[in-house]
Design a protein around this nucleic acid. Structure first.
Lengths: 105, 105
DNA sequence: CAGGTAGTTCGATGATCGTCGTATCATATG
DNA sequence: CATATGATACGACGATCATCGAACTACCTG
């Protein structure tokens, strides 16, 4: 079988897959949690200590392409912000439940 | 770097990764959605038409090992049930938000 | 301009994933 | 017992992933 059947792929599904995949990595989830905890934007480099710069760049790209974070350059460093409102609007309760499993406990 | 730093891996994190990874696949999410929609347990074979039996078995194992579904043999076929209560208790709101992104719309 | 700091890009590598077909097992029924 | 049905086990294949180091770019500062 080649999965050729005509089931509505549902456009939202694409993004949801990306979001869930992005959040399925502990390293990235940790970044998101730190991002959610600190009100002020922080430079990328201050997250996920213990992994290489390239890996960190990779993780931030996955998060960005999933629509979870926003980034902008600021002087010598690049700032990151969790797009909480956007994500909450699109997938209500998702971030809360993913992050809350530790925080709310 | 070899990620040797001492950050609490958080036992819950392991399972959460498995759950999110399980839900990040559209095929599996579809199974879960169907499972959530039908009150009565149904045989595995009645889900996810268009994919091969082995693939379906694989998906059900991923869902089972993530703690999302429960299975038991009943005569010639194997029944499946969404462990809604258990999942809701462990990750409140997660299933609702993942499934709701389509259902609630 | 020289030097340093912060990120990105570019392979590469080993692991995991989704999918398949085939062979096999278990159970029910003729 | 023979057969059909529903599901699993077993590789296998190509794709994607997380991770790395090294080379490169952008920017600030002295």
């Amino acid at each position: 079988m080649i999965a050729e059947h005509p089931d509505a792929p549902d456009p939202d599904d694409v993004d949801l897959s990306a979001v869930l995949h992005a959040l399925s990595d502990p390293q990235r989830r940790r970044i998101v949690a730190e991002l959610a905890a600190s009100a002020e934007p922080r430079p990328c480099g201050s997250f996920a200590p213990g992994i290489s710069k390239s890996t960190r760049t990779h993780h931030f790209r996955v998060l960005r392409e999933a629509g979870l974070v926003e980034q902008w350059k600021e002087g010598t460093s690049k700032m990151s912000r969790l797009r909480r409102d956007d994500v909450d609007a699109r997938y209500p309760g998702l971030l809360d439940s993913v992050l809350g499993s530790k925080a709310v406990a």
